[in-house]
């Protein structure tokens, strides 16, 4: 009896998950399909760039600075043992550009802007603003969702570049200014160690993929949220959890593709 019940609930969950995947994909396709308006009337996207990109600047810059400073400190302590302090610049820059910049910036974006997007759209739905728009013969996916999507996709790579640059500066402050690593070797080792195509371009690709994933998840959760206070708060939590896990999972996949056997 109980086994049958368990099997039934398992089957139910699987069917539900598959249904959800299909729904998410359809939603994603609709966003792309109705994206015309976000570019024809670019001020809509600019407005969202402000609330997702500009409003995330402070947290990204401060977090980037501190992560870079920690990297400088920890890296120095480790490298000193091998007498390789001069490689500090290369270590700081490589870790930031390849991994920490894209991943941490996307994680911060998910919790700062992604959750806000979910809550905003969820509440718009709960207060019938979405339905009102539909009854006005205005497609809410084109008018509300797509501009937010593109704003997110544009913001995340820029934010992660800012994060990395700020982190390099933080590493420089700790390594060169405070500890006293030679400035020349700090920069020259960094330039020798970081390859434009291999490291920086791949980092940008990563952050672009993360941007698409985070924003799509945030918008979908908001659009799919049950129109109640509980529903919206649950959707906000799910946005942060799901997009964080997705970022880390995608990071593994992308790293495996980008940095394997050369």
């Amino acid at each position: 009896m109980t086994i049958v019940e368990h099997l039934r609930s398992l089957g139910h969950r699987i069917v539900n998950a598959v249904w959800r995947i299909g729904y998410t994909s359809r939603f994603f396709l609709l966003i792309l399909l109705y994206s015309g308006i976000s570019f024809r009337r670019f001020h809509l996207t600019i407005k969202e760039l402000f609330s997702s990109g500009v409003m995330s600047l402070i947290i990204i810059l401060v977090a980037g600075l501190f992560v870079g400073m920690v990297l400088g400190l920890q890296g120095y302590e480790t490298l000193k043992r091998y007498g390789a302090e001069s490689a500090l610049g290369s270590l700081v820059a490589l870790s930031l550009v390849r991994e920490l910049g894209p991943v941490l910036a996307a994680l911060l974006f998910a919790s700062r802007a992604g959750s806000a997007m979910t809550a905003e759209i969820g509440l718009m739905k709960a207060t019938e603003q979405i339905s009102a728009m539909e009854m006005m013969a205005i497609n809410p996916i084109a008018r509300v969702v797509a501009p937010r999507f593109w704003a997110g996709v544009i913001s995340v790579p820029l934010l992660s570049a800012l994060f990395s640059a700020m982190g390099v500066f933080g590493g420089y402050v700790v390594g060169v200014v405070l500890i006293g690593v030679d400035q020349g070797s700090f920069w020259s080792q960094m330039q020798a160690g970081v390859d434009f195509q291999h490291d920086i371009v791949n980092g940008i690709i990563k952050s672009f993929v993360f941007g698409v994933a985070v924003t799509a998840i945030a918008l979908f959760e908001g659009y799919d949220a049950p129109p109640t206070a509980e529903g919206v708060s649950g959707a906000t939590t799910r946005t942060v959890v799901e997009s964080s896990l997705t970022i880390l999972f995608l990071d593994f996949i992308l790293t495996a593709f980008m940095f394997q056997g050369e």
Partner: peptide, 9 residues
């Protein structure tokens, strides 16, 4: 709509 559904932004 029931409570107006004004666009709050």
């Amino acid at each position: 709509f029931q409570f107006g559904a004004l666009f709050t932004d």
